[in-house]
Design a protein around this nucleic acid. Structure first.
Lengths: 349, 349
DNA sequence: CTGAAAGCGCTAACAT
DNA sequence: ATGTTAGCGCTTTCAG
C-alpha cells in the first residue's frame, strides 16, 4: 500500500502538508499550488489513507454501528437508509449488525465499543429484549442511542409516534364505518407493544367502540409478537369461534402476512368479510393479495435522527426525542366498508 | 480506555507478555502463573485491545465485508448467516453493506480495501451489474470473491447450482402432470438470469415439452428481473391474451410475489387454474396465499464457502467453486396437477 | 520464559 | 505556509 510519505516525496512536500491537504480543514492554510501538487500525487499513486493509522492517532473510528433485531425485515430498510444517508453526509462509515450477538453475548457492546471499531451504536432492541440488555447498554450511555424501543432512562432515545400510527389506522377503519375492530399486537410487556396496544384501546374508547375484554370478546386483542408466524397464531386465536370483528389492526407488517394467510385459510375474504390495516409500509405490501392498506411511519427520519443525536452527544442529560412527522395511511385494497352482514357482535347479544 | 500498559503494570509484567498471553498463539510460551496473573488483570480492568493499534501493527483488520444488492431481501438472510458463522469461527468481524455505493461510486472498492477497514470483500453483484463493475473488482482479485454472479474470469467465485434448482422445479411440475410451463426469469444478459433460463429451456426439451417461441407462445418466457414489481410485469405479459400455461416457474422468490398478485388480479386461482413454483425459500413463503411451493437452495453453505475461499486466498489461479449440495423442493400449496380444463395449447392449434 | 526497544501510518504541536 | 518532531497502542524481533 502506498503511504503518506510516498505522496509527500512525489509532491516534494512533508507528510504533514499532505495530511493538511487531505484533511480539508478550512483553517489549515495551504497554498493553492502546493495543494494542487499534492492532489496530483494522490491521484497518481492512488493513495488512500490508512484507517488504522488515522484511527490510532485520532482515537476515533469515524464509523458507527447500526444494530437491528432482524436485518432482513423490510421495515428496517428505510430506517437504515435514513441512518446511512446521515452517516455519509457526516463522512462516517455505517456498519450493520444483527442483534443476535447482542442478545447472546453480554459484553458484546463493551467489546464493540472498547475495540474502537465504531465510535457509537444505534441500537434497536429486539421486541423481547431483556432488562439486562438495557442495563448493559446503559453502562455505555453517550455512545449508544436506542431507537423505537424504550423511551426513557439514562440512554439517549428516539422513537416513532406509535400512538399516532395506531390512531390513524383506527380512524381509517372508523371512517369506513367499522365499529368492531380487533388488534394483533406485539408481545406482552415490550415497549412498542405496550404503546401500540394502549393507543388502540384509547382510540376505541374515543370513538365509543366496543372494547375487547369488556363489550367485545377478549380474544379480539392479541399479543403474540411481530413475526409472520406469530401473526398467524394471533389470527387463529382471534378468529376462533364466537363473533368476529369486521376489521383488524395489525401492529406490524410482518405479522400481517401471517394474519392474511390465516384469514385465507379460514375461507374468509379480505376485505369483503374482514378489513385489514397494518402498521409500517414495505415494498411488497402491494404485491400481496389483496394489496395491503398500511400506515406509513417516518422511518427514514427516525434513522437520520438517531445518527444525529448520537453524533451531537455530550449533553449532561439524556435526550428522548419523538419523531413527530405524521404517519400516513396508504389505502390499498385490504380495507373497505363493513359488509351488510356485519353487526355480528350486536346480533350475538 | 484502559490500555495494554495498564494491564502490564497491574500484572507486574511487560506489555509484551500481556500481548503474548492475549494472542493465544501456542508457540508463545508463557508460564501458567504469569498467564493467570495477566488474565486476572485483564478481567479486573475490563481490558479490550484497541483495534486501531493492533491493525496498524499487523496490517490486517480481521474483518471482511459482505456486499449484497439488497440487504433486506429475505433470500439474503441465510447467505449472511452462513458467512457470519464462518467469519465468527475464524475470529473475524463481518461487516454488511448494500451494493448501492458499489454501483454509484467507481472506486468504492479501492477505498474500502485501501483504507484497510476490511481485509476482503464478499460481493454479490446486482442483477444488472455493468461490466465495468466487474473490471473494478478484478483489479483487486485475491481480496474479493464474487458470489452467485459471474462464474469465470480472474476473480475468485462461488456459485449456486442454479441449473439444478430450475431443473428440480420443472421436474416437480412435470411429475404433477404439467406439460405447458411458463418461465419468469431474471433480466436479459445477467449471469444468473442466463443460467436459469438455459436450464429451463434444456429441461423442457429433455421432457419433450412445448418450448416457448417454438411450439408455445413466446411470451411464456419473460425476462424482466427478480424484483416484485418486475415479476408482476412479467406475469402481466405472460398472461396477456392467447393460451396460458398450466404452470409457471419463477426464477426468484421476490418476483413470485408480484406474479402471485397479478394472477389474483386476473381472477385466476392458484393452483386450480395455474401452478406456481419459485426458486429460493424464505420464511414468509408459507405466510403467502396460497403458501408457495419453492426450491430451497443451499444459501448458507454458499455464504460459508465464500468466506472460506476468501480467507484461504493466495493461490496462483482463481478458484471457481460451485456449491453442489442438491436443491430441495419444498412442496406447499401453490402447485397441483393441472386441472382437466388444461390442454389449452393443443386445443388452440 | 520474559523484557526492552523499535516502528506500523498518521496527525497535532510546535517551530520556522 | 510549511517542515520537524513526537507519540497514539500494539506486536515483534532481539537479548537475556
Amino acid at each position: 500500500m502506498t503511504k503518506i510519505g510516498d505522496v509527500a516525496a512525489l509532491a516534494k512536500v512533508s507528510a504533514a502538508t499532505v495530511s493538511r491537504v487531505l484533511s480539508r480543514d478550512p483553517n489549515m492554510r495551504v497554498s493553492a499550488a502546493t495543494r494542487e501538487r499534492v492532489m496530483e500525487a494522490v491521484r497518481e499513486l492512488n493513495y488512500v489513507p490508512s484507517h488504522a493509522g488515522r484511527a490510532l492517532r485520532t482515537a476515533t473510528a469515524r464509523a458507527i454501528g447500526l444494530v437491528v433485531p432482524d436485518v432482513t425485515s423490510a421495515v428496517f430498510a428505510e430506517l437504515a437508509a435514513g441512518a446511512a444517508q446521515t452517516a455519509v453526509d457526516r463522512g462516517l462509515t455505517l456498519v450493520l449488525a444483527g442483534a443476535e450477538q447482542l442478545a447472546s453475548d453480554p459484553d458484546w457492546v463493551a467489546r464493540a465499543l472498547g475495540e474502537g471499531r465504531v465510535d457509537g451504536l444505534v441500537v434497536q432492541l429486539p421486541d423481547a429484549a431483556s432488562t439486562h440488555m438495557v442495563d448493559d447498554l446503559a453502562r455505555h450511555a453517550g455512545e449508544v442511542i436506542l431507537i423505537n424501543s424504550v423511551d426513557d432512562g439514562p440512554i439517549d432515545t428516539v422513537t416513532l409516534d406509535d400512538r399516532a400510527g395506531i390512531t390513524a389506522a383506527v380512524d381509517h377503519l372508523v371512517a369506513l364505518g367499522h365499529r368492531e375492530v380487533g388488534f394483533v399486537g406485539g408481545i406482552e410487556g415490550s415497549a412498542t407493544g405496550g404503546r401500540r396496544r394502549d393507543a388502540f384501546l384509547t382510540r376505541l374508547a374515543d370513538h365509543r367502540l366496543a372494547v375487547p375484554g369488556r363489550d367485545a370478546p377478549a380474544q379480539w386483542i392479541t399479543a403474540f409478537g411481530y413475526s409472520g408466524p406469530e401473526g398467524r397464531e394471533a389470527a387463529t386465536r382471534l378468529l376462533s369461534g364466537g363473533p368476529r370483528p369486521t376489521a383488524i389492526v395489525v401492529a406490524n407488517l410482518n405479522a400481517a402476512l401471517g394474519v392474511l394467510a390465516e384469514i385465507h385459510q379460514a375461507g374468509l375474504r379480505v376485505p369483503a368479510d374482514i378489513s385489514l390495516v397494518a402498521l409500517h409500509d414495505v415494498w411488497y405490501a402491494d404485491a400481496l393479495w389483496p394489496p395491503l392498506t398500511t400506515v406509513r411511519m417516518p422511518l427514514r427520519p427516525l434513522g437520520a435522527a438517531a445518527v444525529e443525536i448520537l453524533l451531537d452527544g455530550g449533553r449532561s442529560r439524556p435526550t428522548h426525542r419523538v419523531i413527530d412527522e405524521p404517519p400516513v395511511v396508504i389505502v390499498r385494497d385490504s380495507t373497505a366498508p363493513p359488509s351488510s352482514r356485519s353487526g355480528r357482535l350486536s346480533a350475538a347479544r
